[in-house]
Deep mutational scan, measured.
Amino acid sequence: PAHPYDRLKTTSTDPVSDIDVTRREAYLSSEEFKEKFGMTKEAFYKLPKWKQNKFKMAVQLF
């Protein structure tokens, strides 16, 4: 299930529990994912792991 970005980011005051914290981005809706990352999930997962992590750090999901 998708969760709002505000509850997934590492600085959230009301974090979602029971998620894989190493894959926070996977819980974003497709729309919100595209808004935050500027690309689709499919394109994101084709990137090298280090680049994925760099993007995730930039949007507080790492």
Rank of each mutant, 00 (worst) to 15 (best):
V59T: 07
P15E: 04
N53E: 13
S17E: 13
L47Q: 02
K49P: 10
T22Q: 11
T40N: 11
E35S: 10
P4A: 10
K54D: 12
N53Y: 09
M57Q: 11
W50Q: 02
K49M: 12
S17H: 14
E31Y: 11
E31S: 14
E32H: 02
Y5D: 07
K49L: 14
S12C: 13
V59E: 08
P4V: 04
Y45Q: 04
F33K: 00
S30Q: 12
F33Q: 01
S30P: 14
Y5F: 08
M57N: 08
K9Q: 10
F62K: 14
S30I: 13
E32G: 03
T11R: 02
N53S: 08
P48F: 06
E35N: 07
E35G: 07
D20I: 05
K54Y: 12
T13H: 11
P15R: 04
K9M: 13
S30T: 14
K34W: 14
K46W: 05
S17W: 13
V16M: 06
P4H: 09
D14G: 04
K51G: 00
S12K: 08
L47S: 01
R23C: 14
W50I: 02
K36A: 08
E35Q: 14
W50C: 09
G38C: 15
Y5Q: 10
A43T: 12
F55D: 01
V59C: 13
K9I: 10
K51D: 10
P4S: 09
R7N: 07
K36P: 01
T13E: 13
V59N: 11
K36S: 02
K49H: 08
H3Q: 06
F37K: 00
K51P: 00
S29C: 10
F37S: 01
E25Q: 02
K51V: 14
V59I: 12
T13P: 10
L61K: 05
E35F: 10
A2H: 15
D6T: 00
R24E: 04
Y27V: 04
V16A: 08
A58I: 12
A43Q: 14
F44I: 00
Y5L: 06
V16Y: 06
I19P: 03
A2F: 15
F44L: 00
G38P: 02
M57I: 13
T10A: 03
T10Q: 06
W50Y: 08
S29E: 05
S12I: 03
R24A: 06
T22I: 10
V21G: 09
M39W: 02
A58E: 14
D18W: 03
K51M: 15
A26F: 11
T13C: 15
F37Y: 03
S29Q: 02
E42H: 09
T11E: 07
S17A: 13
L28C: 09
E25L: 08
T13V: 12
R23P: 04
L8E: 04
Y45R: 07
S12A: 12
T22M: 07
N53I: 14
S29V: 09
Q60F: 14
E31V: 10
Y5H: 08
D20T: 05
N53F: 10
E35Y: 08
L8T: 03
Y45V: 05
P48D: 04
S12R: 03
K54I: 15
R7S: 04
A2S: 15
K36I: 15
L28F: 08
K36Q: 10
P48H: 00
M39H: 01
V16E: 05
A43S: 11
K51C: 15
S29G: 09
T22H: 11
L47M: 12
L61H: 12
E31N: 07
K34Y: 15
L28Y: 06
D20S: 03
F55N: 03
T10V: 13
T40V: 06
Y45D: 05
D18Q: 07
I19Y: 04
P15Y: 03
E31G: 09
S12Y: 06
V21W: 09
D20Q: 03
E32I: 06
W50L: 02
M39F: 03
E31Q: 13
K9G: 06
K46Q: 12
P1T: 12
E35R: 08
Y5I: 11
A58L: 14
M57L: 12
V59M: 13
P4W: 08
Q60I: 07
D20N: 10
D18Y: 07
W50M: 03
L8R: 00
L61P: 03
Q60C: 15
P15C: 11
D14A: 07
S12L: 07
E42L: 08
F37P: 00
A58V: 09
V16C: 09
T22K: 09
G38A: 09
E35A: 10
V16P: 07
P15N: 04
F33V: 00
D6L: 00
S30C: 14
H3T: 05
F44Q: 00
Y27S: 05
R23F: 09
V21E: 12
Q52C: 01
R24G: 04
Y27A: 06
F62G: 15
F62L: 15
F55Y: 13
D14S: 05
K34C: 15
S30W: 11
D14Q: 07
K36H: 11
N53V: 12
A58C: 15
F44Y: 01
E42T: 09
P15L: 07
I19D: 03
Y27H: 07
L61R: 06
A26S: 14
T13F: 07
S30E: 14
L28A: 01
S30G: 11
E35T: 10
F62T: 15
D20Y: 01
F55Q: 06
L8S: 01
T11K: 03
K46Y: 05
R7G: 07
D18G: 14
K56T: 02
S30K: 12
S17Q: 14
A43F: 09
A58P: 01
M39E: 00
Q52G: 00
V21L: 04
K41T: 10
E25R: 09
E31F: 10
F33N: 00
K54F: 14
A2D: 13
K51R: 11
T22L: 10
L8H: 09
F62Y: 15
F62V: 15
L8K: 04
D6Q: 01
P4L: 11
E32P: 01
A2N: 15
R23N: 06
F37E: 00
S30D: 15
E35I: 11
T11H: 06
E25D: 04
F44S: 00
H3D: 06
R7K: 11
D14T: 07
F33I: 02
F62C: 15
E31A: 12
M57A: 08
R24I: 10
E25P: 03
I19N: 07
L47T: 00
K34E: 14
F33S: 01
Q52H: 00
K9S: 10
A58S: 09
V16F: 07
R24C: 13
E32Y: 02
F44V: 00
I19C: 11
